[in-house]
């Protein structure tokens, strides 16, 4: 694996920043890799488009920003429209199936989708949709070791919600494995 750039987009409140944080924490603390996370930092309001960018690399990261992400996770239509043109050739696009209509989907990329919000609701809390997404992403990209991701999820979510969040992660992960099998 070489330097890999990841962009996560959605609207404020979906856990976009926490998702980036979990990937970076898993990679750099529990998976012996390097990681740099930068969050779009501006006078944005809750509910508007927001994004986080994470770099995962086996070696030290010099330039800290992403230029052409190889992995993109979008959880809102606005984020889809705004960010997908940035995705690198041959990159992986992951969308929230019921929130994003992939209009004019680029032909040069791999696309996966998951009804993460619905899965989260079935687990009892809509809020964990980002963690469902993280499980799914881990399965379809292999960017970070799955156990490292589980550890990072466990220590990054509010106390008392660990089990719910790990269930959410596993749900997304299993769905990812099945989707990937279909593709092959």
């Amino acid at each position: 694996m070489s330097r890999t750039e990841i962009k996560i987009g959605g609207f404020g409140g979906q856990g976009v920043i926490l998702s980036g944080y979990i990937i970076g924490r898993a990679a750099s603390i529990y998976d012996d890799k390097h990681s740099t996370m930068i969050q779009a930092f501006g006078p944005e309001a809750r509910g508007s488009a927001c994004s986080s960018q994470v770099i995962v690399s086996p070696t030290e990261i010099a330039y800290p920003y992403i230029t052409a992400p190889e992995i993109m996770i979008v959880m809102s239509q606005e984020a889809y429209t705004k960010f997908t043109p940035e995705l690198a050739n041959g990159g992986i696009l992951i969308t929230e199936e019921e929130l994003v209509q992939p209009h004019n989907l680029r032909k040069d990329i791999k696309h996966f989708s998951i009804p993460a919000t619905r899965f989260a609701e079935e687990l009892g809390k809509k809020m964990v949709l980002n963690i469902v997404m993280m499980g799914f992403m881990t399965a379809v990209t292999n960017i970070v070791d799955v156990e490292a991701m589980r550890k990072a999820v466990k220590v990054s979510v509010p106390k008392g919600t660990e089990e719910l969040n790990l269930n959410a992660f596993n749900k997304g992960f299993e769905y990812g494995i099945s989707q990937k099998a279909k593709l092959n």
């Binding site: 750099s28 990681s35 930068i38």
Partner: peptide, 10 residues
């Protein structure tokens, strides 16, 4: 600087 201040790493 802002970049170093707001950048998250190990």
């Amino acid at each position: 600087d802002e970049c170093v201040g707001h950048m998250t790493e190990r």
